[in-house]
Design a binder for these strands. Structure first.
Lengths: 144, 144
DNA sequence: ATATATACTTGCAAATTGCAAGTTAAAGGC
DNA sequence: GCCTTTAACTTGCAATTTGCAAGTATATAT
């Protein structure tokens, strides 16, 4: 049950689909949390804190709550450890995979990358459907 | 010549390609300016101000400067009206088209839309390459 | 000459961010 | 059972960013 009145309650009050996107994940942090989940399979508060960009604890709590309010993720207790929670992507959240992949492709054109990332970009460009299928499968969500 | 020390000079100092994306256009307004240019062919300060979301004049000036600093747009005097400027997309900016289109597709799945927008989404899904080609052609930029 | 158009800049209050420290509740160790 | 540690937050507060309203600068129109 999402409780906190989530972040930047500011919305554009426009019915443009791009504005709907920026209302949902258009801030400095939200998309990075989604990246951690979609690309790296992260599921715990502590996992997100460890990411390279060093999100602050209060911002992370706020964004997780926001994502839950927006229906992109779900929060559940960890059955194996009652002081921990597990965040999982909903279908709606997972459906942002193509957006993330296109951002990666764009960066790949204009920014130098290490081999691992170049390989990922290569896979996006040559094997995209299977890559997406793998991600959906890992999350246990059936594809369209 | 970009002069002003652009907005949120804050960057994630991460070499993740997604973080590079959010550093470049991950705020409430930048992507909407790009949308206006990519989807609606807008080119002038006053055009951007008229968009449905009502960006403030100072924020718009700041974001245009930021986009120019990042090499996504270029600013030039209007040869026909010396009190006006024309902003144009660079290849780098135009290459964000697939990102914008995927955001639109995602919104199309989770938000109701009018017929014009549903038609655009239909075209994205059935005729994507030609749609992108049209946009590049309109901007006079050769495709990859 | 005067008015209008275009593209900004400035001032300032309000909202958001980010750091550091504190809190709560559940394990784990002895 | 008691103390320590772990995991997930919350709180306080300074600094940064946003957003509104008003002002400025330069070019064109009448």
């Amino acid at each position: 049950m999402p409780v906190r009145m989530a972040r930047s309650a500011k919305k554009h009050s426009s019915d443009c689909p791009v504005a709907h996107g920026t209302d949902t994940f258009g801030d400095r942090w939200t998309l990075l949390v989604l990246r951690d989940m979609i690309l790296h399979g992260k599921r715990r508060y502590g996992d997100f804190l460890e990411s390279e960009e060093k999100i602050a604890t209060n911002i992370l709590a706020d964004r997780l709550c926001h994502l839950e309010n927006e229906g992109l993720i779900e929060k559940a207790r960890d059955p194996d450890n009652r002081r921990s929670y597990i965040y999982t992507l909903t279908r709606k959240g997972l459906d942002l995979t193509p957006v993330i992949l296109e951002i990666i492709r764009w960066s790949g054109r204009y920014k130098s990358m290490n081999k691992r990332r170049r390989d990922l970009i290569h896979r996006i460009e040559t094997d995209r459907a299977a890559l997406i299928a793998d991600i959906y499968r890992r999350e246990g969500v059936p594809q369209s």
